[in-house]
């Protein structure tokens, strides 16, 4: 038995080694770094230096506010959209199902830089298709990237476009696992399709919806690409700066690794806390 265990660990060793060096050690190391003042040479142990700064830093609270705002608006909208897409994909009336499934999933595999560039072009003040469309229906064009609210809207639209299809595919798997005869029983009970959706589909899909929501919460807490590339480093004037972007700015522009580590742990802690609250709120009654 012991010999078999040793063999198993020898096979696991390459993975465990790589995991330890590139995952485990950075996790521990960054936690230790968050208690050090890293703008001095050599670094010195100062337990309250970064964490104390965090509590009083307006840039941190601005980034936190922006991140939570995106989370509160974008995640529910995207999940709702994903549910609608999944239901459409699951409909027996839909033709060319494979094509739609591919189309919904495709944004995930598009390169982040490429899609960000396309979104910048689409929302361009003078040449963007969005403003052209607004003009064509008699609405004034919007300067998407010079004002905070439209810039936030662009980020939310972009993130939703990229991830709604991905969530829809996960939800579709959930939909397909609901037995057909449950719907047949409801049909015999004279329950309309709409009521079937709200009273049968949604409750039975709840564990999958919660799973998608938790994934999205974690993703949004780490949001970086869109505010970095689409709204040009959290612009205008930090109006779309997220925690991920603040971390990058502190860690890799200012080389303040201690503070960046404290921000990273705050992001992780928030993601875990919000996810736990979400799981608790949507738990199954005993």
């Amino acid at each position: 038995m012991r010999y078999q265990n040793a063999t198993a660990y020898r096979f696991l060793a390459p993975y465990l080694l790589i995991f330890s060096i590139f995952w485990l050690w950075p996790i521990i190391s960054s936690f230790l770094i968050s208690f050090q003042a890293t703008r001095t040479v050599p670094w010195r142990f100062a337990p309250t230096f970064n964490w104390g700064r965090l509590i009083g830093d307006p840039a941190f609270f601005n980034a936190l506010k922006n991140t939570l705002l995106i989370l509160v608006i974008q995640v529910p909208v995207m999940i709702t959209l994903a549910i609608v897409m999944a239901v459409l994909l699951n409909s027996p009336l839909l033709k060319a199902r494979g094509l739609f499934r591919f189309a919904f999933f495709a944004p995930v595999v598009v390169g982040e830089v490429a899609y960000s560039a396309v979104f910048r072009l689409m929302f361009n003040l003078d040449y963007g298709i969005i403003n052209k469309l607004l003009n064509s229906v008699g609405l004034p064009r919007i300067d998407w990237f010079s004002n905070v609210t439209p810039a936030m809207a662009v980020i939310m639209i972009a993130v939703s476009w990229r991830w709604a299809g991905y969530n829809a595919i996960i939800l579709l798997a959930g939909l397909q696992s609901i037995p057909q005869d449950v719907y047949e029983a409801a049909t015999l009970d004279r329950v309309s399709k709409l009521k079937q959706f709200f009273y049968i589909t949604l409750p039975l899909l709840k564990p999958i919806i919660v799973f998608c929501a938790v994934l999205s919460i974690i993703g949004t807490m780490q949001l970086f690409t869109e505010p970095f590339l689409i709204t040009e480093r959290g612009g205008p004037g930090g109006g779309t700066e997220t925690l991920g972007l603040l971390l990058y700015r502190q860690g890799f522009k200012s080389l303040n690794f201690g503070y960046a580590s404290a921000i990273a742990y705050t992001m992780a802690g928030l993601a875990i806390a919000i996810s736990l609250v979400q799981l608790w709120l949507t738990r199954d009654p005993k």
Partner: peptide, 12 residues
């Protein structure tokens, strides 16, 4: 009224 092989009860 129909009784199904798999019972078709609403699990939730």
């Amino acid at each position: 009224a129909m009784v199904f092989q798999s019972y078709a009860l609403y699990p939730h």
